[in-house]
């Protein structure tokens, strides 16, 4: 069974009388351990797809099953718990809280899953080590460079050991060299067995992932499946 199963997902907005189909009948499986990119121009619906995959939004039609649980009629509190334990987010603008230091920022997801303080600190330090930032634990986000901030944000996404990590344009706000370093970090995490979904508009970035899904006008326009392309290494 796939880690994520989307079946006939549609998301429809109404602006006045006009119907806008942000997503139109999307069916998609993501296997555990995959590194996958969702690519598409702005307005294509890729962000909406990510929000639905990330339990931030719910579809108008269709079913979504995440890690064996059907998210059909989940309450907001259940969705929040899901985001907390099963999902990690990395954003374009890092979204670190400026008033907290790096370590406190990374502890934040565990605060909401009621992990005791001592364990929180330990796990946050481990996560920092994983992204190579353990010497910056006491710094404030604004004292760090963009790349360092994004590493801290990745550590925050990983700290609760999620089943899947979503990265929304993670290199969009970085220069190309730091961006590459961040992509290398994702590749390394992927090799360690993490499931990662990269959302981007940039085909060059999408090129690093074995599997690519192109969204256009709310539909899956093209997929590059490593199995079909003969690129499967495993």
């Amino acid at each position: 069974m796939a880690l994520v199963e989307l079946r006939n997902i549609s998301k429809i907005y109404y602006v006045g009388d006009e119907e806008i189909r942000a997503l139109d009948d999307i069916t998609l499986d993501i296997q555990s351990g995959e590194f996958i990119s969702i690519i598409g121009p702005s307005g294509s619906g890729k962000s909406t797809l990510m929000h639905i995959l990330g339990c931030l939004d719910s579809p108008t039609k269709g079913t979504i099953q995440l890690d064996g649980t059907l998210l059909h009629n989940a309450s907001p509190a259940q969705l929040a718990a899901f985001r907390n334990r099963k999902i990690g987010f990395v954003f374009q603008f890092f979204n670190l809280l400026p008033k907290l230091n790096v370590l406190q920022n990374i502890e934040l997801p565990m605060v909401y899953s009621s992990v005791p303080a001592r364990e929180r600190k330990e796990r946050a330090l481990n996560a920092l080590k994983m992204v190579g930032m353990d010497n910056r634990a006491k710094h404030r986000p604004l004292q760090l460079s963009g790349g360092q901030q994004q590493r801290a944000a990745i550590a925050r996404a990983l700290v609760n050991n999620p089943r899947i990590v979503f990265a929304d344009e993670p290199t969009g706000n970085l220069d190309s060299r730091t961006g590459e370093a961040i992509l290398d970090l994702f590749l390394q995490l992927s090799r360690e067995g993490r499931t990662i979904v990269l959302v981007t508009h940039d085909p060059e970035i999408a090129a690093v992932t074995p599997r690519r899904i192109e969204i256009r006008d709310g539909k899956i326009a093209k997929t590059l499946d490593p199995k079909l392309a003969g690129l499967e290494t495993k």
Binding site: G54, L56, P76, A77, A80, A81, R83, N84, R85, G88, F89, F91, N95, L97, L108, P109, Y112, S113, R156, N160
Partner: peptide, 16 residues
Amino acid sequence: IREIGLRKAIGANNAS
């Protein structure tokens, strides 16, 4: 607002 959005994204529920 962004802080609240982020807290929600990483798992804060409405009650917290």
